[in-house]
Design a protein around this nucleic acid. Structure first.
Lengths: 337, 337
DNA sequence: TTTAGCACTCTTTGTTATCGACTGCTAACT
DNA sequence: AGTTAGCAGTCGATAACAAAGAGTGCTAAA
């Protein structure tokens, strides 16, 4: 455990370093509230904090910067998780009140708002289809050889896809397909569609495989499809001093470009929490120089979207966590939307 | 007009500079095919080419680099627009044979292929709705207060949107709406939807504005909606030496991030051509340090997508233009898809 | 336990010198 | 007249060195 003064010194260093991105000297923090002692005393405290792994030096005669352990302690013990102004609350509310027709858009708006307030890059993905219950499934004929399938789930998620055929389809066939699929699938979890083809064909000998097969294959394809990943404020990060190294900047762009990486990053977090990964805490090698904060927008255990911030380890954790907490709360209030 | 030797010198300099990104010295090109004279002669030619504006110097004692006028001459007169290998042709064909259900995906695949072969960043947008003829418009009830509208056009473009209502909708109402809209809109250009609301309401006094109004508003919204812009290989550009300057790299990311800029860039080109904009030839201030090559995928004067490459002025124009020409040809062959 | 003071360390910045690549020009050559 | 060899001159890149400045660690006194 750290004594009170050490906590204050650590907090002062972390917060100052977050602000300035420069190593913090003993002189620079003596004026920090609650710390009225000389720079020499601070130096002694800093030396000890460094010995215990909370601080790092860039070289022997430099000021100190927080180590990952230091950031972690700050996030766990010293953070202000209500660091959000009235104006920000107002702005968030107004943004989230936007009428949306698809849930996916709500996630995008939330991600955009977070990026605007925190000035960090956000990454988001839409709802996960698993766990969702099929409320309705509809087939619509478009022309003569094209069909659209629309699936509506209990959380209001809508998935649609186009299916093409090698033969003409009659309206009567569509009607039967509608009846048949709804009969089998209504009220079932969406994964049910993944069952073997034969099951669907048992009682419907009149329907050729030519019609049913492409339908099921296409629907499965759409449901399994790579989630679309939305970026907000990718270029905001470039204004930060840590991105002044070309290598880091390049690396960052390439990370954002790697969809699987972003997808894994967002999906790995725990459900009902704000997840903070600092540097080496990230599972993925590529992210070990960054910090990532994520949260999931859940309703009744069903995921309606996940939003993550990716930025330097020197991230304004107070602001980021405060804003995320508030937006998460707001999203849950608006369940009925 | 340039005499034969000057053409050869210019071509050698442009091609070598494209390869190496280093100013080209007189010594470096004497071995170039068809040029058997001394470096001193080349120097004289280079001096004259510079006087005429085809070449630039970075400083007094450096080699030469092509000026924008030099690139332009190269593109117009010296280019090999069939610079494409058998393997590349094979690869392109295999990629374009991918079965797609929506035309938009075809543009994406083409853009992806171009980026893979040229190693430059590509930008693409899907079909434009204007000029398209409505072939069919369908409304499907989802639940009780939600409806999906699907519009199919003559080129196979499918647009769909969700509409929410404040009151319950009956299947009978949907049937009438389907009839009513198809009656009015089938065979009409898609812009017809933009006509004033009253026209639709004339003969349908039984339908409350509460139902018709949100439908038309939402459809109009979707049709006017910002086109989605797809990027491929954004990070490929970062391996080029011109992006070693942090300022340029930052600039580039911010350009790619600006949707209106990208949209204008793609939309400005002429229809049936490969459009090449070199540096200052770009209308947009932000692009004046880059070169842009675009082409539109058109069928019967209807735009089904536009693809652009954005890269350094030192772009491999031969390769880029060859690949684009070939892909454009291929896309037009596959009209029926 | 705290603090003043000072030697020491290390980065940053600026200066100067040197090397090497290329051009431009002149004079000779075909 | 066109071409070429040769050489002086220019400029960028690199390295070596000096000086300044910021900050620490340690020691000894309060």
């Amino acid at each position: 455990m750290l004594d009170e003064r050490k906590k204050k010194v650590l907090q002062a260093i972390v917060e100052q370093y977050i602000n300035t991105a420069e190593p913090v000297s003993s002189n620079a923090i003596i004026c920090h509230n609650g710390l009225d002692c000389s720079s020499a005393t601070i130096r002694n405290e800093m030396a000890e904090l460094e010995k215990n792994g909370y601080l790092d030096k860039t070289h022997t005669s430099s000021g100190r910067i927080p180590s990952e352990k230091g950031y972690r302690y700050y996030v766990d013990e010293l953070i202000n998780d209500n660091d959000i102004s009235k104006e920000e609350i107002k702005y968030i509310s107004s943004k989230l009140e936007t009428k949306v027709n698809e849930i996916e858009d709500l996630t995008k708006i939330a991600a955009n708002t977070i990026s605007e307030i925190t000035h960090y890059t956000t990454v988001s993905i839409g709802p996960k289809t698993n766990n969702q219950i099929i409320e309705e499934i509809k087939f619509v004929l478009l022309g003569t050889r094209m069909m659209m399938a629309v699936i509506l789930t209990d959380t209001g998620l809508v998935k649609e896809t186009i299916i093409k055929f090698d033969e003409d389809i009659t309206p009567k066939q569509v009607e039967t397909i509608n009846y048949m699929f709804n009969n089998k699938l209504k009220g079932q979890p969406i994964e049910t569609i993944d069952r073997p083809l034969e099951e669907y064909l048992y009682d419907e000998m009149t329907y050729s495989v030519n019609v049913i097969k492409p339908i099921i294959e296409q629907i499965k394809k759409v449901l399994e499809e790579d989630e679309k990943i939305y970026l907000e404020g990718a270029n905001k990060s470039f204004d930060l001093p840590e991105f002044n190294s070309l290598e880091v900047a390049k690396n960052f762009v390439s990370i954002l470009d790697t969809k699987e990486l972003m997808s894994d990053m967002l999906n790995s977090g725990f459900a009902e929490d704000i997840n903070v990964y600092i540097g080496e805490e990230n599972e993925k090698e590529e992210l070990k120089d960054f910090s990532v904060v994520t949260f999931k927008h859940n309703v009744n255990g069903k995921n309606l979207g996940t939003i993550g911030i990716i930025g330097p380890k020197r991230m304004d954790y107070s602001k980021v966590i405060s804003v995320m907490k508030y937006i998460n709360k707001k999203l849950n209030e608006n369940k009925d939307m």
